[in-house]
Simulated assay, not measured.
Amino acid sequence: MESTKLNRRDWLKSGLLSIGGLAIAPHMSFGETPRVFPNTDKYGDFLYSPFFKEHVTNKPFAEPKALLAKLNANENPHGPSPKALEAFKDSAVKGNRYAWRELFDLMEKIAEKEGVAAENIMMGPGSSDLLEKTGMVLFLDGGNVVSADPSYMSLIRVAEATGASWKRVPLKNDWSHDLDGMEKAIDADTKLVYICNPNNPTGTITDGKKLEDFCSRVSDKVPVFIDEAYLDFMPNDVQKSMVSLINKGKNVIIARTFSKIHGMAGLRVGYVVAQKEMLDKLQKITRGGMGITYPSIYAASASMDDTAFLEKSKKLNTESREHVYASLDAMGMDYVKSYTSFVLFPIELEGKAFLKMMTEQGVGVRSFEIHGKNYCRVSMGTMEEMKIFSKALKKVIV
């Protein structure tokens, strides 16, 4: 066993074991997350845990161009910002150059926004890349990761593929994280606690003050990774980042992305904020920022300055979400109140059949089984797309 661990570490350090070597593959339904191949049940659905699985159709989803409303990947239909597009276009001519100086400039800009030092920032091509790198590096010698179930699976799947075990703690009845249960689950082999807030696929939040107290206390024992990909969609009165804990010396890692509110999912820019010692540990094996293109760096910087676009993006997302609520109310259907760019709601139909029927209507969505009950997760598109979704859903559930 010890020889296996050493070989794994040597392969990673030599660059021979990449994300591809860990059997990462695109999700067949064109989702937002590359994943390690999960276990499947006898129906071919993806089994994430005894409580949580994803329904998968027998055939891959239609390509985006074949869908009237592509609402299965939590993409922002309103972006990128016009200023970001202009910056991308203007800088593309220098795409023959490496962009290290420009990347450092972006890191300085992000650090100023977050109120930390630039040495606390590590860049990556999207936040999922950084989640996965953390999962690889921290679990070279095994150990376990504690997280909620269900939650975003990117870090968990890579950690398991690297050699970790997953200690899953079911969400509470209100869909918030069971922080007490998670703290009790920590043992001598725990290498990381992972929290997605707002959570995916539920769209729910855990109280900011309670989470801050938890992170402050628990990070003295084990690193805590807080994934804040959807933070910018939250109302200002409940929006609370854990970045403030960095200047208090706490061993936390906070992930942010340009894929959501900035509408740059295809341009691939994200970052984590962490203590320098943690980032040094990650970058001994993997290089932060190496996968970001020259024009994407300029686009990200320009998007940060386009506050009017960011505010409009949030407003339009909220309007689409309210439309979904109203449509579900009119159909007599329940839903989980969301603080993100997607809504989860229970369905009576079997998941595969539901996906097939929605796809036949030209609408791409996702379907999960959580604690034995079927759910649909619909991403927020344009208002036109949401109206197409509502019309299709009404036909399917009748």
Rank of each mutant, 00 (worst) to 15 (best):
S49R: 02
D178F: 05
L355M: 11
K53I: 06
T206M: 02
M331H: 09
V272M: 14
R157N: 03
H27L: 08
A25M: 07
D149W: 06
C376K: 07
D227W: 09
K13N: 07
F225R: 02
D149A: 08
I285F: 10
R217S: 15
P34I: 08
I370S: 02
H27I: 07
D329I: 13
N251M: 11
E160H: 05
K65E: 15
I292R: 07
I347E: 12
A302E: 03
D90K: 08
M383N: 11
L12Q: 00
Y325G: 11
V224S: 06
K209M: 11
L106Q: 01
S367M: 08
L68S: 13
H78N: 12
M358R: 01
D129I: 04
M290Q: 15
P64L: 10
V137P: 04
D105E: 08
E2D: 04
V36W: 00
M28R: 11
N197A: 03
Y271P: 01
P198T: 07
T257S: 15
E183Q: 12
L85A: 14
S81N: 12
A66N: 15
V93L: 10
R366D: 05
A118N: 04
G124M: 08
I254R: 00
A302W: 00
K133Y: 13
D45W: 03
T204D: 02
A87K: 01
I195A: 01
E322G: 04
S327A: 15
A148V: 02
M278C: 15
E114T: 04
A66V: 06
E75F: 15
P346W: 13
P34L: 10
L355D: 06
S176T: 10
A164T: 00
R287F: 09
V169L: 03
S301E: 11
G270F: 03
V218H: 06
K65V: 15
A159H: 05
E228W: 12
L310A: 07
L6M: 12
V169A: 04
A84P: 06
K94L: 11
K387G: 08
L171I: 11
L282D: 04
E2Y: 01
A84E: 03
M182V: 04
K260H: 14
V343R: 03
I110S: 05
S91N: 07
A117I: 03
H323C: 13
G15T: 02
P80G: 06
Q283C: 10
I292W: 02
M242W: 08
G15S: 08
M278V: 15
N39L: 13
A66P: 04
F104Y: 11
